[in-house]
Design a protein around this nucleic acid. Structure first.
Length: 877
RNA sequence: GGAAGCUUAGCUCAGCUGGUAGAGCACCUGCUUGACGUGCAGGGGGUCAGGGAUUCGAGUUCCUUAGCUUCCACCA
């Protein structure tokens, strides 16, 4: 028999176990026509990334589902991969180049991309290796990358398709421009931040009416350089007469018209708005409606352009200062108010976004959003927890056209070619050599690349071979569960949904399981700048991957954030160690020739039937919990079963039997122990894969790996409801005896005689050995009615028995009396509560029969107990 | 300006379809009991944020108030 070490050492076990799984090929999913498929695609981590707690959580949950389904007999596929992370990666590479004094432009596009690929080859695999440390049972043979050949092909195919359908267009629109990253970003990539600013009230002289002004309010005075009009509300009596007139733009000496537009809010500021179409999305719309020119006064790096007159070349905030100073000097400034407002910032670098008119590519969202909304509304796709449906729908219903072009090099280059002769655009999945419109050979490709989310939107099917009609796609698509955090519902989940529906005609998954954020022990978000991040790899090396995984699911519930603390990790580690030692005990007590198997029913003792019954119930509950994504509950129940039921009772009970003379009894005890351990290991395996595998393989008669063993099923042959209840009475008595012994400070080694007075001797007869051991009794005597001198006895009472312990010499009579009175009071309180309920007409007539009966039973038991406690008090007095 | 979540034992959190509150950690008392002191036995500790409604019965459903957190939002 394999001797296990005293303390479980995850570091010794985990890596070899993972290698063993890989070699065994059990992660690889086969297209087995006799099995149902179950598929998860991993949210691809950025190649720039290092594993953090968010990944650990996300992937633990996915692995739980995959391992569970695999054991249930599904062909379970978990597709791993990484994301090229356009902006993040490019910024990273540019930063390292900067240290060498090299810019992107110095290097040129081709060499830059070479360098980026080198970078990817060097670091892209890092996070993948870290995922393996977690125990992730991904099918690595199917690992993908958003820029690999297949995924790139899918991207080009989609671009072409949408372009042909008129759903991708190129145009001048206001976009969010990041002056630091020097690229456009989508609305989703803008983060809003409350900032305190000012509202400057600026007087614009009315042309032809000397000395008269209209006052506009603005938070960004420097943009006035690009003003082409001022607007008022058409119904605004204050300004109606001005519509159609012109005003003089201060500092620029430009005459601009006054227009009327519904967009203006009469209540806000002065009710007059300056219109800067090139630098404000609303103004852009107003400008379009009134056919106003678009005057761009800002450069890509946020300086004033040559259209900005004397301010040209100034940085945007310096320009603001200068403009305000000049307004003041020219007496154009009416007043300055403090004003809090939201400023858009770049989600990558935090730089304040500059809304700017720019020629970009867009995806028309309205036609795509419709079916995506429908699929969630009609239940084709459901969110867990359900409340995130609202987040999703709100996003989808309010979405605007998606800016997909990025002024970056690292990414999928836009497959559009411009003709130098006719100016037309040729969009192609291949590499065209001539213009599709005029046949000219002088064409050049668009310089821009696509938003990184454009390729991740295709992830659930591009990874399975789409647009080819592969066997994988046919078998594993649509996928089943998508596991992710609530922070990327808009970025990613929504885009996968409309993409899946539009391109494949199918919803890409049926369930979106949302988990919360992992925060630090103080509840703060883990962040690099705070330096409060806990590295999952540190936790793994200190406590083991199983402990980390266990910590990440216990006490958690979908959608809610959780705090990660060292104490929690330690207690998980302790649990692993507890399990290890339980297994160690079991194996130490198995003879060489032990043959495992379901024990003979006829040989089962009361306690066996009790624990088998408890286990049987556990199997049903855990299965149900996992199926409903209630991992926290599932894990809690397994924990309780193993620690409390298995270790503290079953093993303790087994100790006497294992060393007793009854060979059949000992064998039965062993069989029960092994049977339950085997079952519990399987239930725990999805959560703690390493230790369960290690123990499983050490068990006699076990198969090659636990990974693909059948998930335990509930079995009527294990259901002993009556015995389960009966053994409960034995437990009650043992607990009662333990309580008095503890309260009386009786040393555990001091064993005592125990007389049990009961009308149900068969019950305690069956549990006699158990009582003897666990209640520290040297001998147990069963009597129908106690006839001795109760005054010299410590007494305990349960609903069906009284226990007498002759150890009055050890205790204090007063103290004992006080204890019994306290117990009596508690019992009477219970009786009062139950009686009140039963006296309530409404309760008895309206509550379900089983509930009423339950209360009746409880009342009866309490009354029985009350009787016995009273007798004990009388005997003492 | 919308929307959501949270408020349960000292701390961190569970609690599914309503039936007299649970865990882990911390704390207190015993214990080198034949796997485990990363352990064993026992214990104290909660008007389930406040108010109202529905119900025979509410931590659990509905309304409302307060505090905290988050997401979304083009009002200059």
């Amino acid at each position: 028999m394999k001797e296990l070490e005293k303390v479980y050492e995850p570091a010794r076990v985990e890596t070899p176990t993972y290698d063993f799984w890989t070699k065994g090929g059990w992660f690889k999913a086969e297209r087995d026509p006799d099995k149902a498929s179950y598929t998860i695609v991993m949210p691809p981590p950025n190649i720039t990334g290092q594993l953090h707690m968010g990944h650990a959580m996300d992937n633990t949950w996915q692995d739980i589902l995959i391992r569970f389904k695999r054991m249930q007999g599904y062909s379970a596929l978990w597709v791993p991969g990484t994301d090229h992370a356009a902006i993040a990666t490019e910024a990273r590479i540019v930063a390292t180049m900067k240290e060498e004094g090299v810019t992107k432009e110095d290097l040129g596009r081709e060499d830059f991309l070479k360098r980026a690929w080198q970078w990817k080859d060097e670091y892209g695999g890092r996070i993948v290796e870290q995922l393996k440390k977690l125990g992730s049972s991904c099918d690595w043979s199917r690992e993908r990358f958003t820029m690999d050949e297949g995924c790139s092909k899918a991207v080009l195919h989609v671009f072409k398709k949408l372009y042909d359908e008129g759903l991708i267009y190129r145009g001048e629109r206001i976009i969010n421009w990041c002056p630091h990253c020097l690229t456009s970003i989508s609305d989703a990539e803008v983060e809003h931040e409350e900032q305190s600013g000012h509202l400057w009230h600026v007087k614009y002289p009315i042309v032809g009416e000397p000395g008269k002004f209209v006052t506009v309010a603005t938070t960004r005075p420097e943009t006035m350089l690009g003003d082409v009009a001022v607007a008022v509300h058409p119904e605004d009596a204050r300004y109606k007469h001005l519509v159609g007139k012109t005003v003089l733009l201060p500092l620029m000496d430009r005459e601009i018209p006054v227009v009327a537009d519904d967009y203006v809010d009469m209540e806000f500021g002065t009710g007059v708005v300056k219109i800067t179409p090139a630098h404000d999305p609303n103004d852009f719309e107003v400008g379009r409606r009134h056919d106003l020119p678009v005057l761009k006064v800002m450069t890509d790096d946020a300086h004033i352009s040559e259209s900005g007159g004397k301010y040209a070349g100034m940085e945007r905030y310096a320009a603001r200062k200068a403009v305000v100073a000049d307004l003041e000097a020219g007496e154009y400034l009416d007043k300055i108010e403090d004003h809090g407002h939201n400023v858009g910032t770049c989600y990558r670098c935090g730089t304040t976004i500059e809304p700017m008119v720019s020629l970009q590519w867009f995806v028309k969202m309205i036609p795509l959003a419709g079916p995506a909304i429908e699929a969630v509304k009609d239940g084709t796709i459901k969110f867990v927890p359900e409340r995130f449906t609202k987040t999703y729908l709100h996003w989808m219903e309010n979405t605007r056209d998606w800016t997909i072009s990025r002024q970056l090099w690292w990414g999928h280059r836009i497959p559009a070619w411009y003709c130098d002769s006719c100016g037309e655009v040729t969009v192609s999945e291949g590499t065209p050599t001539v213009c599709a419109h005029c046949g000219s050979g002088v064409i050049h490709q668009d310089e821009d690349t696509l938003d990184t989310w454009f390729s991740s939107a295709l992830w659930p099917f591009s990874t399975l071979g789409w647009p080819e009609e592969t066997e994988d796609l046919a078998y594993f698509y649509p996928t089943n569960t998508l596991v992710t955090g609530y922070d990327i519902i808009g970025f990613w989940v929504s885009r996968m949904i409309f993409s899946g529906l539009h391109y494949t005609g199918k919803a890409p998954f049926d369930t979106v399981l949302i988990h919360g954020l992992v925060r630090d022990a103080e509840g703060r978000k883990m962040s690099k700048s705070l330096g409060n991040g806990i590295d999952p790899l540190d936790v793994i090396s200190e406590y083991g991957a199983d402990a980390l995984r266990f910590t990440l699911v216990s006490g958690s519930t979908p959608g809610n954030d959780m705090r990660f603390s060292d104490e929690k990790a330690r207690s998980s580690r302790n649990f692993a160690n507890k399990l290890w030692n339980a297994a160690r005990f079991v194996m130490m007590n198995l003879p060489e020739d032990f043959t495992p198997g379901q024990p003979e029913k006829s040989a089962l003792e009361l306690s066996d039937k009790w624990v088998l019954s408890v286990y049987n119930k556990l199997v049903g509950e855990v299965t149900d919990n996992i199926e409903h994504f209630e991992f926290g509950l599932a894990v809690q129940k397994i924990y309780d079963f193993l620690w409390d039921v298995y270790c503290d009772w079953t093993i303790e009970i087994a100790k006497t039997r294992l060393n007793g003379e009854d060979a059949v009894g000992a064998d039965t005890a062993r069989k029960v122990l092994v049977f339950l351990l085997d079952g519990a290991l399987k239930l725990l395996h999805p959560f703690m894969p390493f230790i369960t595998e290690e123990i499983y393989r050490a068990l006699p008669g076990s198969a090659e790996t636990i990974m693909i063993q059948a998930w335990p099923k509930q079995d009527a042959a294990l259901d002993f409801a009556a015995e389960q209840e009966a053994f409960g009475e034995v437990v009650n008595l043992i607990r009662a005896v333990r309580i008095v012994r503890a309260e009386m400070n009786v040393h555990p080694a001091k064993r005592s005689h125990l007389i049990i007075e009961t009308a149900r001797p068969e019950l305690f007869k069956a549990g006699e050995a158990v009582i003897q051991r666990l209640a520290n009794a040297e001998a147990v005597e069963l009597v129908p009615a106690f006839a001795g001198d109760a005054a010299g006895m410590v007494q305990v009472a349960t609903a069906v028995a009284r226990g007498f312990i002759p150890m009055m010499d050890l205790i204090d009579r007063e103290k004992e009396l006080a204890r019994l009175n306290k117990e009596l009071a508690a019992t009477e309180k219970e009786i009062a509560s139950h009686s009140a309920k039963l006296a309530n007409e409404g309760f008895v007539s309206k509550a379900p029969a089983n509930v009423v009966q339950d209360i009746r039973d409880k009342l009866a038991r309490a009354q029985e107990k009350q009787l016995r406690v009273r007798e004990s008090i009388d005997a003492l007095g």
